[in-house]
Amino acid sequence: MSALMSLLAQAPAAPAADPVTTGEAVAFWILGPLALAGGLGMLFARNAVHSALWLVLSMLSLGILYMIQQAPFLGFVQIIVYTGAIMMLFLFVLMLVGRDSSDSVVEVLRGQRLTAAVFGLGFAGIAVAALVRALNQVPSAGLASVNAQNGGNVANIGRALFTDYLFPFELTSALLITAAVGAMVLAFAGKERQARKTQRELVIERFQGDRPSPLPGPGVFATANSVATPALLPDGSVAPESLSELIEGTSAELFGEERASVAGTGHAADAHALTGEEAAR
């Protein structure tokens, strides 16, 4: 890496048409490592949600880099479309699919990870070396003059889109509507709709079944709700806490008067009790 740095340092300075200002260099050396850190974090995060958040960091850094590189329109589109829409769509799907569906550690192909890492690093080395060898003397024309005329960057891109690139631009509309319809078709759950049963059909179905009454609530084991009926434990024995102390611990004689009054054999209330006369029996 240090050799690369020295090689880059020897590169001739950009021509005066598009000088790289100090502010841009500072921003690049802050945002570039941030973007790389986001990519590496996405690569190494075990949790898929963490991967998505690292990728958001990388995309935000790239969006600001676009703005620095005289592409303010693309920078804002990057932030709005990529981090605002696409990554939120990713997070939605992650939540739907289950965020704990992280990577399996089982290697289906033996040594595939190692091979992939070696090839990927080799690719990075080749690409970086080729770029350094090929492009370190390329002068940069810069977009300052282009962006200054005809109403700025956004207006110029709009003009290019609707003149030179009109047909591809129209094709993107077909692509977008195809994608929207395709996503709806693919994500549709595919349940055929059943006609709802009417109240009458439900009642007939219930009475033709084996139990017309509703099922007891959960946890109810008793066959009667009288206080004299003890509750049964899951093994069928009587739960001692459910025995009524009043009923079990009171002798029947104590309630003799009440039982007689309920049965109609006790003495009735005497309307003439205070007059001294015996009520006619």
């Binding site: 590169a11 790389l36 990388s58 590189q69 770029l131």
Partner: peptide, 17 residues
């Protein structure tokens, strides 16, 4: 620095991907 640095960053990000 030159704009080549951006290309290097891009190559590294592409390799990570």
């Amino acid at each position: 620095m030159t704009p080549t640095y951006y290309l290097l960053l891009s190559a590294l990000l592409f390799s990570i991907g």
